[in-house]
Amino acid sequence: MGFKLLSKLLVYLTASIMAIASPLAFSVDSSGEYPTVSEIPVGEVRLYQIADGVWSHIATQSFDGAVYPSNGLIVRDGDELLLIDTAWGAKNTAALLAEIEKQIGLPVTRAVSTHFHDDRVGGVDVLRAAGVATYASPSTRRLAEVEGNEIPTHSLEGLSSSGDAVRFGPVELFYPGAAHSTDNLIVYVPSASVLYGGCAIYELSRTSAGNVADADLAEWPTSIERIQQHYPEAQFVIPGHGLPGGLDLLKHTTNVVKAHTNRSVVE
């Protein structure tokens, strides 16, 4: 069995187990497998329904001669939608809004960016022009300005110390501490036991640490421990890039980060 097929099978099995364990909360999309990078042309966006009122959005972007996937989250909030992270750029984010209108038909009224990198804030200006209120932590807003990236308009308070959590509509926002970046936030959907790890969490097929220019490698494993301790009931975990899975993604990420750190020390 090929690795790609095995990865998709694991996603399907995880979703099936969740649907059985929580039949009222989960209505997993039966329309197909989780979209992969090879299936999404740059400039297009796919939506994948995880649970009743919960979707991931998947886009792709060219970077350094390669094409990478990027995940975000959409959560229903009454007759409105909360968006977590842009679709990595203005063109993708405009396509995301169009796809949401086509498939869901509810307005996106608020959006949260989970850290300051372009795959999370690139497209904020498109959201703002569409009347979406954009939010991020003060740290993310400051770092985005320093980096020359787009800056969300509103500040999220109460997320300055490791372990801080605040309720934001249908989700809980959690600051686990520094990891992929010093400002990275985690998003949890309690009604569906869905954990969105953003770039602080890796997919299972990833074996290298990737972009760690703004990471705190020493603190990252401790931050992941905080996530595990705060959300032990999480059933569906979405990484910032690639295929979702279960809580095993947290341990896998820790292993990859520690291996990278150990290699760096040896070198």
Rank of each mutant, 00 (worst) to 15 (best):
L5E: 07
L6M: 04
S7T: 14
L9G: 09
L9N: 10
L10Y: 08
V11Y: 06
V11T: 10
Y12I: 15
A19G: 11
I20K: 13
L24G: 08
G32K: 14
E33R: 10
P35G: 12
S38Y: 15
E39I: 11
E39Y: 15
E39L: 04
E39Q: 14
V42G: 10
V42R: 13
G43F: 15
E44G: 10
Y48W: 08
Q49K: 12
D52T: 04
D52R: 08
D52I: 03
H57D: 07
T60S: 05
V67T: 07
P69R: 08
G72D: 00
G72P: 00
G72L: 00
L73T: 04
I74Y: 01
V75W: 00
D77E: 04
G78F: 03
E80V: 11
E80K: 13
L81P: 02
I84Y: 03
D85T: 00
W88P: 13
A90I: 06
K91E: 12
K91I: 07
N92S: 09
T93N: 14
L97F: 03
A98Q: 03
E99G: 10
I100S: 08
I100F: 02
E101F: 12
G105F: 03
G105L: 14
G105T: 15
V108W: 00
H115N: 00
F116G: 13
D118L: 08
D118M: 03
D119A: 00
V121A: 10
V126A: 09
V126W: 05
R128C: 03
A129G: 12
A130Y: 06
G131I: 15
G131M: 13
V132H: 01
A133L: 14
T134Y: 04
Y135S: 07
Y135F: 03
A136C: 12
T140G: 09
R142V: 11
A144H: 04
A144W: 08
E145C: 12
E150K: 15
E150S: 15
P152I: 12
H154L: 09
L156T: 12
S161F: 12
S161Y: 03
S161W: 06
G163E: 08
D164E: 06
V166M: 05
G169T: 05
P170R: 06
L173C: 06
P176K: 01
P176F: 01
G177Q: 00
H180R: 00
H180L: 00
L185P: 00
L185V: 08
V187I: 08
V194W: 02
Y196E: 00
G197N: 07
C199H: 00
C199F: 00
A200V: 06
A200D: 08
Y202Q: 03
L204M: 15
R206P: 03
R206Q: 13
A215K: 14
L217V: 11
I224E: 11
E225V: 09
R226M: 10
R226A: 10
I227Y: 01
Q229Y: 04
Q229R: 08
P232H: 05
E233A: 08
A234R: 03
Q235A: 04
F236S: 11
F236Q: 15
V237N: 01
P239K: 01
G240W: 01
L243M: 03
G246P: 03
L247V: 07
H252S: 08
T254A: 08
V256G: 09
A259P: 04
N262L: 06
N262H: 05
R263W: 03
S264Q: 15
V265L: 05
V265S: 06
V266F: 12
E267N: 02
